[in-house]
Design a protein around this nucleic acid. Structure first.
Lengths: 237, 237
DNA sequence: TGCTTCCAGATTGCATACGATTTGACCAAA
DNA sequence: TTTGGTCAAATCGTATGCAATCTGGAAGCA
């Protein structure tokens, strides 16, 4: 395992260390530092973060709930290896939820937040112009953060949680099935959405969002993709 | 605590007992046998189900993730006491998701499933005509099950999980803020939705669903409601 | 060689032990 | 009566130990 970002526990999180571990693993997964299928053994995670198996286990359980990790009884936890079917469902869910989110965001967004979005887009652009895997990771992360910021502005905590899950799982899917790594048109589309937001044009923003999701999904190669996991293949009648 | 429905572990669930406990507690909560605010101590839950705190804790953690239980550090777990604000967000989420679910269900529903829905509606009607708290509980449960069946037919596992959470939390909200207990018009509206489904009229089914959700929410009294919990009141700036 | 059997190592599932934190009661003082 | 302080009981957070299960490879047999 290769989790460089060691956590200083006493620092940011005086309590609930399992939550911090969950966050660290989450970041590692959506950053692709942990590849799908990687085994996450309780003792290994525990010793990496200097905690007992108990708390490592709690973190893994949380990730399992989010769908980022799959656990098999008596075998352990593995980074999820979403099937094409799963991928389609993830994007179907997003197509359903995100237009509503931008519509809500239009009603509530404040000038200061628009400014924040602009800065976010600048960061996206910076990563886009850089080369190398680190920049790619940064780009994926930043792109996801755009959607999460929207959810945050929309002001519905429940939808925000759903989006947290959907965006994270999308990152996994893109890592697995992405043709070009990141759809390069993503940035300009984000930009267009923000423009519509600024003009308080909810209908347009929602429509743009649907197209945006379509484009992301269109950049995937969801045709059975040789692998399929072999184990999953047999479980699928 | 008053959980009559003792589980026979070795029976239905050879594995993962925490999952069974979660299910039992879930049912107790959405059936209102466990009132909002009730403390769910780890040791108590554990001894009730004849398991150690470890597995009881896991069950409570799952329920916390679903929003049915709130845990405070070093204090324990309590049945959620959703605020009016939370309630509004729950229904806003449902208004966003459920129309899409019925639309998807229209595309995939099979005759056998329609038959199943009819039986479900019959059961709803039976409870509706009975009197007494047990019938009320049955009615709430059956009414929620209708929505869950729809999600199941829609065939999107992720949305199904979201709906699981939303329906369960809705039950809690109705228990807390429901004016008439159950909106009596619910049954006929379910019936109308099913008719539209049968005629494969997706647009109409979706529209009916939105109205249905509106009606459920309209039956709630979400005006601050005296209580507010005192503790929550201070945490809310 | 190829196939089956069996055992050792590793890992999880679960229970329990111990320290830390909170709570509520009791008692004293104003 | 009310306020404030101290302490014991209860409960949670976490580590660890043991049994059950799975895996992989070595040995045995055809």
């Amino acid at each position: 395992m290769n989790i460089s970002e060691k956590i200083t526990f006493t620092d940011a999180s005086p309590d609930d260390r399992s939550l911090a571990i969950r966050e660290a693993l989450r970041n590692a997964i959506i950053d692709r530092r942990l590849a799908p299928g990687t085994k996450l053994s309780e003792s290994e995670v525990g010793s990496l973060f200097d905690v007992s198996r108990t708390v490592a286990r709690a973190a893994l359980q949380m990730l399992t709930f989010e769908g980022l990790v799959k656990t098999e009884r008596n075998r352990g936890a593995f980074v999820s290896n979403p099937s094409p079917e799963e991928a389609k469902q993830i994007f179907a869910s997003r197509r359903l939820i995100e237009p509503g989110i931008v519509a809500a965001a239009v009603e509530r967004i404040m000038p200061a937040e628009i400014e924040q979005f602009r800065r976010q887009l600048d960061e996206e652009a910076r990563y886009m112009n850089e080369r190398g895997p680190a920049a790619r990771r940064g780009e994926i992360k930043a792109s996801g953060d755009f959607h999460l910021m929207l959810a945050s502005v929309a002001g519905n905590v429940i939808l925000q949680k759903f989006m947290d899950e959907l965006v994270a799982r999308s990152s996994l899917v893109i890592a697995l099935y992405g043709r070009s790594g990141v759809s390069s048109c993503g940035h300009s589309e984000h930009s267009a959405i923000l423009d519509a937001l600024e003009k308080a044009d909810g209908a347009r923003a929602a429509a743009l969002m649907v197209h945006h999701i379509d484009h992301i999904e269109a950049d995937l190669d969801l045709q059975l993709k040789q692998g399929l996991g072999l184990r999953d293949a047999l479980e699928m009648p």
